[in-house]
Amino acid sequence: MIPWTVLDTAPVPDGLGELRLKRRGDEFSIMAGATELMNSRLSGSEKALATLACERLGKRPALRLLIGGLGMGFTLRAALGEVGGDARIVVAELVPAVIAWARGPMAELFGDSLTDARVSLFEGDVARLIGAGPAAYDAILLDVDNGPGGLTRAANDGLYSPAGLAAARAALRPGGLLAVWSSAPDGAFTTRLRRAGFAVEEARVRAHGKSGARHVIWLATTGAGGTKSPSTRPPVPPRRGRD
């Protein structure tokens, strides 16, 4: 068997330890300690995070999506395949090295997704964009850490707290959707979503094809009413230089 090669390491801001990017043949893995956060052969649930969310949004014009976590780009690429030419997608990535890996050793996975005119890349905490303005997005897709029970960064817990969920709900347009990826179920998080005023659906999705572990995607929707203005546009982060 081909051995794993460590390509690079990166510290986790305000977190525990570091991330490691590994490669074995054409397979990539990102590790945090002994925990594998993502693997290029196990992308089914990351793609489903985007496809399930877009299915529920329907054919809305000028969709505005916020993706928290760049990862290996599977959620972004799936979203680009679902939305129209007038859509705009902002991707927030906290770890600068993950962006560098996307443009460097993992560029083959990303294809032309990072140079798509519909995409803006924000280097920083997704919570900053969530709190930047009300009614900015049709959907917020979070694939941060390993789910609501964070492993790599304690500050991630704030996204899933009652205050974090209230901020996410305020950042959504009427009828908007919060989609959250997790490696495992979390009944307490489902309860928090409902208490925050969301209607909640839990989808169990295979990591790969019809086999492998089942991951969880929460699809939490707001009501169609409310006082938010659907014409509000999200803050547009500055584009980073492209390699």
Rank of each mutant, 00 (worst) to 15 (best):
D86H: 05
T9V: 15
E93Q: 12
I2C: 00
L49M: 08
T115V: 15
G69F: 13
R41G: 03
L80D: 06
A50N: 06
G147V: 04
G176Y: 12
A207Y: 12
R24Y: 06
L80Q: 01
R118Y: 08
P134L: 08
G69H: 02
P96A: 09
R206N: 14
S211H: 11
G73C: 03
D143C: 08
T190R: 10
G133Q: 05
D243T: 15
H208P: 00
A100K: 07
G149P: 00
P174R: 11
A48H: 07
S161T: 14
I130E: 03
R169Q: 14
A168E: 13
A78G: 01
G241L: 06
P3F: 08
F189S: 08
D157V: 00
A203K: 14
S182E: 09
I99W: 12
G15T: 15
L76T: 13
C54H: 05
S229R: 05
A97V: 05
S120V: 11
V12A: 05
P96W: 13
F189D: 06
R77P: 04
L219G: 04
R56P: 12
L129Y: 07
L165Y: 12
G69L: 05
K22E: 15
L42G: 00
A10E: 09
M31K: 01
V98W: 11
R169W: 15
R169N: 02
G175S: 03
K59T: 11
W181R: 00
R242Y: 15
D8G: 13
A92I: 09
P185D: 09
P235E: 09
P105E: 02
E27G: 07
W181L: 11
A170C: 12
G149I: 10
A135G: 14
A79R: 02
Y160P: 03
N146H: 09
F28A: 02
L63V: 04
E55Y: 06
